[in-house]
Amino acid sequence: MSPTVIAITLFVLALIIGIAIIGRVPTTLHTPLMSGANSIHGVVLIGVIIVAGHINSPSSAIIIFLASFFGTLNVVGGYVVTDRMLEMFKPKKSQEIDSDTKITTEPISISVEVITQEAQKKGNK
């Protein structure tokens, strides 16, 4: 099978996955989602790097330089901004307890362990 046919198949399947996943995102997260998706299309940087391996004229060196600048700006800026937005999406309580971004169930399970450990200690005494 030709690479093109495989590529088109991949494209169509990825579109379907994208629709299935994104259709369920709540409105609250639409801006961060847009920003996050925005940084993902910075993968164009991979194309820039691959093409840079085969530079054969001054004009393409300039094009690659510009493309690399654009691509990295897209990736880095996009991720920094998305992270800044999402940092604020924390329920009030967990923000006070734990500034780390681990899943909220973790502190609960830890605290259960702590309680049981303490209970055991008391029992031992």
Partner: peptide
């Protein structure tokens, strides 16, 4: 390039749905 095709299509779908 597989990752560019898949990621591009994902973002395409995201933008379209939004």
């Amino acid at each position: 390039n597989v990752v560019m095709i898949v990621a591009g299509a994902l973002v395409g779908a995201a933008g379209a749905i939004l």
